[in-house]
Simulated assay, not measured.
Amino acid sequence: MSPRRFPYVGALRGRPAPPPPARAGDVLAETESLRVRLGAREVLRGVDLAVRAGEVLALVGPNGAGKSTLLGALAADLPAAGGVVRIHGRPAAEWSAPELALRRAVLPQSAELSFPFPVADVVRMGRAPHAADPAVDDAVVAAAMTATEVGAFAARPFPALSGGERARVALARVLAQQAPLLLLDEPTAALDLRHQELVLRLCRERARAGDAVVVVLHDLGLAAAYAHRVAVLRGGRVAADGPPAEVFSEALLTEVYDQPVEVLPHPRTGTVLVTPKRSL
C-alpha cells in the first residue's frame, strides 16, 4: 500500500528558504542568562549555553533540574522570563513559525496523535515545512523510516504501535524534517537496548553530517559514549559543561544526583563508565 499524500505538503508557495549549510562549530542556538518560569516557579535561573553544528550535546541531571524546560526554550516553544534565546544568531521570538520549522526539529517526550494516521503519513508530516518535489519527499521519508527501522510497519495505524515503536516513528518524522538543529527530549526512554544504541548512533551521524543535536538523557553511560559535550543541570542552572571525560567526575555526579557513584574507564575503549555505588 503506497503512503497517502498530504495535499499541503509541498503545495504551498511563497515559503521561506531553508538556512544555508552550517560550518562545523557554528553556533546554531544559544542562551544567555536565560530564565524561564512555569507558573510561580522559576525553573531556569541564568543559563548560558551554546549549541554548535557538528556536535551532540547531552543535557543530563536529576528529575526537576530543568532539562526539558531548557530544550523547550531552545526550541522557542517556551518564552523567556529573562535573558535571551538565539536560533541561528537571531532572537528566537523574531523567527516566524515557518522559518523556525526549517531551522529546528523537536522530538517531545511522548508521541501522541488523536487520529489513526498510518506510520508513513506520520513520518511524511516532517516534510510539511518544505516546498519540495513529491519525489524528493518520497525519498527523504523512505530514508528516515529505514534509518529508524520502522519501514516494516509503514501502513500500520500509529496508535496501534507499542511505545518504543511510536518513539522511533516520531524520530523518523524529525529526521524527515531535515532541520539543522535537532532537539530530542528523552528519545531513548521507551526503547530496548538495541534501539537505544540505534538512536544515539543516528545522533552522531547527524552531527557528523553537520547538524547540531541536543538530546536529553537520563542514562549517563549513553551520554558518555555518544555525546561530544554534556551539560549537567542542577536546580535550574548549569553545574558543568564540557566533554564527558572532563565533566563526569565522581564528586560532581555524587553531589548532583545525591547518590554515590563510581566513574571508571572502560577496560577496552577507555570511555567513561558511570555506575551507582551499591551495597547488596
Results as ranks from 00 to 15, higher is better:
Arg156Ile: 12
Val174His: 10
Ala29Met: 03
Ala212Tyr: 12
Gly25Ile: 05
Val27Met: 12
Val140Thr: 10
Pro7Cys: 14
Ala53His: 02
Gly25Ser: 11
Leu171Asp: 05
Glu250Gly: 07
Leu264Gln: 14
His228Ile: 04
Ala101His: 00
Arg90Met: 07
Arg15Tyr: 00
Val213Glu: 13
Glu99Arg: 01
Gly54Met: 01
Arg104His: 11
Tyr8Lys: 09
Ala135Lys: 10
Gln178Glu: 15
Arg194Cys: 11
Leu78Val: 04
Leu74Gln: 05
Met125Trp: 01
Ala176Ile: 08
Glu94Ser: 13
Asp211Ala: 11
Ser249Arg: 15
Asp211Gly: 04
Lys67Tyr: 02
Ala227Leu: 04
Arg86Glu: 13
Pro129Val: 09
Pro243Asn: 11
Val141Leu: 10
Arg124Ala: 15
Leu28Met: 13
Arg4Pro: 08
Leu71Cys: 04
Ala239Asn: 04
Val169Ser: 13
Arg23Tyr: 00
Glu55Leu: 09
Pro62Ala: 15
Val122Trp: 06
Gly64Val: 05
Thr146Gly: 15
Leu28Tyr: 04
Ala81Gly: 10
Glu99Ala: 12
Gly235Ala: 06
Ala167Tyr: 01
Gly46Trp: 04
Arg124Asp: 03
Glu32Ala: 14
Leu264Val: 13
Pro243Cys: 12
Ala147Ile: 05
Ala209Arg: 06
Val216Ser: 11
Ser162Ala: 08
Val119Ile: 11
Gly14Ala: 11
Gly235Cys: 02
Arg127Ser: 04
Val214His: 05
Ser96Trp: 00
Asp219Cys: 00
Ala92Ser: 11
Glu30Gln: 12
Leu38Ala: 04
Val119Asn: 13
Val136Thr: 10
Val247Asn: 14
Leu220Lys: 01
Asp26Leu: 03
Glu262Met: 14
Leu280Cys: 01
Arg208Cys: 01
Ala76Asn: 06
Ala131Ile: 13
Ala154Val: 06
Ala155Val: 00
Val140Lys: 07
Leu161Ser: 09
Asp121Cys: 08
Pro21Trp: 03
Val199Asp: 15
Thr31Lys: 06
Phe117Tyr: 14
Arg127His: 09
Asp137Ala: 12
Val199Phe: 07
Val140Ser: 06
Asn63Ala: 14
Glu94Val: 02
Ala65Arg: 00
Val123Asn: 14
Ala132Ser: 08
Glu94Thr: 07
Ala227Lys: 01
Leu175Arg: 03
Gly126Val: 09
Phe248Gly: 13
Leu113Gly: 03
Ala179Met: 09
Pro260His: 12
Leu74Tyr: 07
Val123Leu: 13
Gly270Thr: 07
Phe6Leu: 15
